[in-house]
Simulated assay, not measured.
Amino acid sequence: MDVANVILSGVVGSTAYGLATPESDIDRLGVFAAPTVLFHGLRPPVGKKATKVSTDPDVTLHEAGKFAALCLGVNPTVTELLWLDEYETRTELGERLIGIREAFLSAQRVRDAYFGYAVSQFKRLEGRGDGSFSADTRKRTAKHARHLARLVHQGLGLYRTGRLTVRLQDPQWYRGFGERVAGGELDEAKALLGDAEQQFDEVRTPLAERPDEDVVERWLIEVRAAFL
């Protein structure tokens, strides 16, 4: 996919988590800056037009303004780009974006985004029965269960420390958890969520109550000035 003005990009998803299998796709995520003049026209690059997607290879690029908005909501699949160990594209503006990554965070939004997303994954699992389904469905269910556990643990880590660890410490545990849940052990997933909810209630977090939107806005204005 040929998109101009990419300022930060890297490999995310299962590969970044350490959960990739030989069948896994390599997912790339990035941020690009649309020419500032376009925001003064009749059809500014916002909403759906602010995201570029290709499937061969799998690449998603969000325009800087949309990316910032998604990160302020602590969207897990977008936020992780700012916490990778390495990048494929890392410009000066991208470096500054990484440098303000804590400004996007806030306690309640972290909890809502990660724990809330995990709960929604669990509801999908509950609708798939007791494990007596096709091999293909079981494979998808195991994947959803792995990512449920990942979201819980990454979210708790971020809530507890103010920092997101993308690479999982014990990928094999997540694979085993996924297989067990896909085999019908939904109580294990329910227990994981129950324990996580209790920890979110009890742990002290260094995260602020609100994100620092002033810092984010200054960065975005820098981007607009750079591509005026």
Rank of each mutant, 00 (worst) to 15 (best):
G129R: 08
E23Y: 13
V46S: 05
E86S: 15
L151K: 01
Y159A: 01
R111L: 09
H147P: 00
V31P: 00
R101E: 10
R43N: 13
S120P: 04
D214M: 08
Q154S: 04
G47I: 01
D27S: 07
T91R: 09
W219Q: 01
D136C: 00
T55R: 12
I7H: 04
T89E: 14
A4Y: 08
V216D: 00
F200V: 03
E185C: 01
V181M: 05
R210N: 02
L38W: 13
R210T: 06
R218Q: 08
A225P: 01
K123A: 08
E197K: 15
G13A: 11
G178Y: 12
L151W: 02
D195Y: 06
Q199N: 02
L228F: 12
D130Y: 03
G10N: 06
E185L: 03
E179F: 06
L105I: 02
G116Q: 10
A182G: 10
V78Y: 06
E95V: 14
E102Q: 14
E88V: 14
T51D: 00
A20Q: 14
Q199F: 03
V6P: 02
F133N: 01
G184K: 07
L192Y: 10
E102G: 06
V216P: 00
P171C: 08
Y17K: 15
A20I: 07
L186C: 07
R150V: 14
G184D: 03
D56K: 15
A225Q: 12
K190G: 06
L168F: 13
I26H: 03
V59S: 09
A20R: 12
V46T: 14
Q169D: 14
A182C: 07
T89F: 07
L93V: 10
K139Q: 09
D2M: 10
D58H: 15
K190W: 14
V6F: 07
H147Q: 05
R43Y: 13
K52F: 11
A103T: 02
R204I: 05
D170K: 15
E95N: 14
A50C: 02
R140K: 15
E126V: 12
Y174V: 05
L193V: 06
P171A: 09
L8M: 05
G30K: 08
A118W: 08
R160G: 01
D56L: 13
D2Q: 14
G176H: 14
W219R: 04
R150T: 11
E23D: 15
V78R: 02
G18S: 12
L42E: 11
A69Q: 10
P44A: 05
A189S: 07
F122N: 01
H144R: 05
G65L: 15
A225K: 12
D170F: 13
S14K: 11
Y159N: 03
F122K: 01
V11I: 15
R28Q: 13
W83F: 15
R28A: 07
V12K: 04
E185F: 04
F104A: 00
T77I: 10
W219L: 02
R28V: 09
A149G: 01
L192N: 06
G116T: 11
V216G: 00
